[in-house]
Amino acid sequence: MISETALLESAALRSSVLERTDVLDRVKALSLLPDGMHVTTAMVATYFEVAAEAIRQLAKRHRAELAANGMIVLRGADLRHFERDNMSLSLGSYPQARRSLTAYSRRAVLNIAMLLRDSPVARQVRTYLLDIEHLARTQPVESPAPASVELDARIDQRITHILGKTVVPMFNALIETSGEHRRELIELREDIENVERKLCWHHARLAALEGDTLVDEVRSKLKAMTWRAFEHHVADLLRRDGCLDVVVRQARTDRGIDITGRTADGRTVAVQCKNRSGRWTVPSADMQKFAGAARAIDQVDIALFVATCNFSHESEAIAKLSGVVTVNREELEAWSAGVRLKALR
């Protein structure tokens, strides 16, 4: 069993349990900014019932680790965009312009709980975290026969295919033509999509029992793709999620749009694909070009920018202003693993 001392001293152990951010809410409610994703230094200090300076000093000592888990320091245009979108009492009021602002994701807040030694709240979070991890490691897991695992996986995939190719498109058509029962049909469609997502995760669990990690498999396949293969991969994902007339366009005539199509309910779709690796991020110039082509020229209903990396703060801001839906590396991996893209529902 992992001890609290080991957790405080080992970055590797902390990294291994950072997905369990739900333990924060088990101890007390963590108030988030209006974007639903971040908190400020003052909000983190309030949660852990310590002085804000204690959080600042901790963030300074462990900057690299916290930055890898969602801590960001905003300045200039990024800061102005962030404050404009999150203007509230939680940001406080200042007589002069703020030069920078440090914002933390839930993952970064959990990271702080594993570093903050003198906070009773942080100790309680660590206690919950260690208890849950101990249960997960010691709970017996049934090991079905390989043939049974393979059969269950085939059944899951078949049901998921039927739901995605038949049932959900049927609901889309009914919703498009319905009147008074539109709300009920939308709720039923969401229930079906929830079942579909659960089957995808069940399939991932079965793969793990066989010794395969689905996310690692997806990640390695994406990494090995050429830019053209990646475009065709995204086109296949669109078709899998019920899109029709999906076309991968020629590079010389794409005007920043790599793929076009339409959803089952008739909405037009345009996609830009960027196959990049490492620390590369999508710059604002690429986002501006795509947003202009998708909105001003083609005037499509759904504009998707899909990348094997993350987006810069500037490109995210442009996407939000222009209505472009961004699909970053993590979201792409989930989409590739079987989870339907929310924008296409």
Results as ranks from 00 to 15, higher is better:
residue 211 G to C: 12
residue 185 L to D: 08
residue 33 L to T: 04
residue 334 A to C: 01
residue 335 W to Q: 05
residue 139 Q to R: 15
residue 254 D to H: 01
residue 175 I to P: 09
residue 215 V to C: 00
residue 39 V to C: 10
residue 70 G to L: 08
residue 86 N to Y: 08
residue 163 L to K: 04
residue 197 R to I: 08
residue 333 E to V: 11
residue 108 A to M: 09
residue 47 Y to T: 06
residue 250 Q to D: 15
residue 136 A to P: 02
residue 178 S to N: 05
residue 251 A to K: 14
residue 22 D to Y: 11
residue 246 V to D: 07
residue 102 T to H: 11
residue 54 A to P: 01
residue 111 N to C: 09
residue 59 A to S: 15
residue 201 W to V: 11
residue 225 M to I: 00
residue 247 V to T: 14
residue 263 T to M: 04
residue 267 R to H: 03
residue 2 I to F: 06
residue 293 A to K: 01
residue 308 T to R: 06
residue 345 R to W: 08
residue 272 Q to I: 00
residue 51 A to D: 15
residue 264 A to G: 14
residue 282 V to G: 03
residue 142 E to P: 04
residue 90 S to R: 15
residue 102 T to D: 12
residue 171 F to W: 08
residue 249 R to W: 01
residue 73 V to P: 04
residue 6 A to I: 00
residue 279 R to G: 15
residue 286 D to F: 00
residue 197 R to A: 13
residue 5 T to A: 11
residue 220 S to W: 01
residue 74 L to R: 07
residue 289 K to C: 03
residue 53 E to Q: 13
residue 112 I to L: 15
residue 328 N to R: 06
residue 8 L to K: 00
residue 41 T to S: 11
residue 119 S to Q: 08
residue 24 L to T: 07
residue 149 V to E: 02
residue 300 V to R: 13
residue 110 L to A: 00
residue 29 A to D: 13
residue 190 E to H: 13
residue 138 T to K: 07
residue 30 L to C: 11
residue 337 A to I: 00
residue 300 V to T: 12
residue 57 Q to P: 00
residue 232 H to E: 14
residue 86 N to G: 09
residue 112 I to C: 10
residue 257 I to A: 02
residue 340 R to P: 12
residue 213 T to L: 13
residue 92 G to V: 10
residue 65 E to S: 08
residue 285 A to R: 12
residue 191 D to G: 10
residue 340 R to C: 03
residue 32 L to W: 05
residue 250 Q to S: 12
residue 37 M to H: 03
residue 12 A to I: 10
residue 295 R to K: 14
residue 191 D to C: 10
residue 153 A to G: 03
residue 342 K to V: 11
residue 115 L to N: 02
residue 309 C to E: 04
residue 224 A to R: 05
residue 319 A to T: 06
residue 185 L to E: 09
residue 35 D to Q: 02
residue 93 S to T: 14
residue 141 V to W: 07
residue 93 S to W: 11
residue 114 M to V: 01
residue 91 L to F: 12
residue 128 Y to H: 10
residue 265 D to G: 10
residue 11 A to L: 09
residue 210 E to T: 11
residue 144 P to C: 01
residue 85 D to A: 15
residue 195 V to T: 13
residue 64 A to N: 06
residue 335 W to E: 07
residue 263 T to H: 05
residue 304 L to G: 08
residue 19 E to V: 06
residue 129 L to K: 04
residue 215 V to Q: 09
residue 8 L to E: 00
